[in-house]
C-alpha cells in the first residue's frame, strides 16, 4: 500500500472515531444529520457484499470492512436512541435535516445501472455504493449551512471524512503508474466526492486553520 492509501484509510477511520467519541463524550447529537448516517450504512452494506463470498482479500481489508459496516450501524443506533434520551435535540435534528434524499437515491441508482463494471447484482450494488458515497454527505452539509453555527467536532468529522476520498485520488494515480490499472468508476466518483467537499474544505481552511495560525504566538 502506498502512503496516500494508508493515510486515506486512517483519516476515514479517524472520522468515524471522532464522530462516535463526539456523541459519547458530549452526550449530544446536535448538528449531526441522521440522513447522512443512514446513507453511509447503505453505502457500506452494498459495497462489501463480497464479504459473503468468503474470498477475502486480506486480514486488513476484512477487518476494515467489518468496522465500517458495524460502526455506521452503531452511529445510527446512537442517534435513534437519542429519540428518548434527548427528545428536544432529536426533534431539532429532524427539523433541520430536511435534504431530499430520495433524489440522491434515485440518481445514484440510475447511475449504478448505467455505469458499472459488469451487469451483475454485486457489481451494480458496488457501483451504487460508490456513487452514493460521493454525495452522501450532502444532507450533512445542507444541515450545517442551514444552522449556520457548527460544533467544532462535527466540523473535524466532516473534514477527516472528506480528506479520506481526496487522498484516494493520488493513490489511484500512484497505482496507475506502478500497477498499470485504474478503476475509472471509483476515480470519477472520487473526484465528484472531492468537489462536493471543496466548498467545505475552503471554509474549514479559512475558519479552522487560519484561526489556529493566528492564535500562534
Amino acid at each position: 500500500m502506498n502512503p496516500f492509501r494508508i493515510l486515506g484509510d486512517l483519516s476515514h477511520l479517524a472520522s468515524i472515531l471522532v464522530l462516535i467519541f463526539n456523541i459519547k463524550s458530549t452526550n449530544t447529537i446536535e448538528g449531526i444529520s441522521i440522513k447522512t448516517q443512514v446513507l453511509y450504512v447503505l453505502v457500506f452494506l452494498t459495497r462489501y457484499l463480497d464479504l459473503f463470498s468468503f474470498r477475502l482479500v486480506s486480514f486488513y481489508n476484512t477487518i476494515m470492512k467489518l468496522f465500517f459496516i458495524s460502526s455506521s450501524i452503531y452511529v445510527v443506533v446512537l442517534l435513534q436512541r437519542s429519540k428518548t434520551t434527548q427528545a428536544v435535540a432529536y426533534k431539532t435534528m429532524l427539523l433541520t435535516d430536511t435534504f431530499k434524499v430520495q433524489y440522491i437515491l434515485l440518481g445514484t441508482l440510475i447511475a449504478a445501472f448505467v455505469i458499472n463494471h459488469k451487469f451483475t447484482f454485486v457489481e451494480i450494488a458496488w457501483s451504487f455504493s460508490v456513487w452514493l458515497e460521493s454525495v452522501a454527505i450532502l444532507p450533512q452539509l445542507f444541515m450545517l449551512s442551514k444552522s449556520g453555527k457548527s460544533k467544532s467536532l462535527t466540523v473535524h468529522y466532516i473534514f477527516a471524512l472528506g480528506l479520506y476520498r481526496t487522498l484516494y485520488i493520488p493513490n489511484w494515480i500512484w497505482r496507475y503508474h506502478t500497477e498499470g490499472v485504474i478503476d475509472k468508476i471509483a476515480l470519477a466518483a472520487g473526484i465528484i466526492q472531492t468537489l462536493v467537499y471543496s466548498d467545505f474544505f475552503y471554509l474549514y481552511y479559512k475558519k479552522v486553520i487560519k484561526r489556529s495560525a493566528l492564535n500562534l504566538p
Binding site: 484509510d9 482479500v57 481489508n61 470492512k65 463494471h117 458496488w126 498499470g180 490499472v181 478503476d183
Partner: peptide, 10 residues
C-alpha cells in the same frame, strides 16, 4: 484493459 475494479480497496 487498464480500467478495472480494484478489489483490495475499501
Amino acid at each position: 484493459s487498464k480500467n478495472k475494479r480494484v478489489h483490495d480497496e475499501l
